[in-house]
Design a protein around this nucleic acid. Sequence first.
DNA 1: TTGATATATGTCATATTTGACATATATTTT
DNA 2: AAAATATATGTCAAATATGACATATATCAA
Lengths: 104, 104
Amino acid sequence: MNTKKKKLLETAGWRVGSTDDFLSLTDEEAAYIDLKITLSKKVRQCRERENLTQTQLAKCLKSSQSRVAKIEAGDPSVSVDLLIRSLFALGVTKSELAKMLVSQ
Amino acid sequence: MNTKKKKLLETAGWRVGSTDDFLSLTDEEAAYIDLKITLSKKVRQCRERENLTQTQLAKCLKSSQSRVAKIEAGDPSVSVDLLIRSLFALGVTKSELAKMLVSQ
DNA sequence: TTGATATATGTCATATTTGACATATATTTT
DNA sequence: AAAATATATGTCAAATATGACATATATCAA
């Protein structure tokens, strides 16, 4: 998958509302990027709800502040695995995760 | 995260019903493994529903038959990214993915 | 403003994930 | 039964993700 394209799209994702049929992505690619953006926003939401700093969340994750920043920025170097593990570390359950996917 | 432990748990996951508080995993670890098992089962279900062979799905994914076998086996070497991209390649939507998480 | 704290961004060595291959084992077809 | 097809398992070089670090830029309190 084209990393440059993903980076571009993700960056654009914060400026425009939707990400579909932009730069002629396949449906799978669009769905995947859309998912990542959704999850990254949720990580920030959950972290702020818990009144944690990026540094504190990083400690929970045995990671670093800079990586948490990238998680929340939807950086292409961040996997869905890490996004989901971050949410689980923030106490999100599987059914809550499911709800996150449907609520826009 | 302990790969050996994950492997063991995932193998056990096919024999016993539940995977929680087995081998003293943290909640996050248990949730993560549980998710992987759920998704891997769904990939097989969806592929069979579409009457595709592992080789055919592999072609869609630009991957290989052996990796598809590992995806469906919940192999520890398979990321949640790949599991989810497989489902998207099989035409699953984000809201269908959400339903998959809640239905056991 | 200054200092303190929080977040963002770039880089990089290491770790993990990947497709591909070989090959074993099921499963189905003839 | 044998042949054909499908799936499983082990290995490995290459690709990608990762934590850590430096450092830039916000944000906010004094």
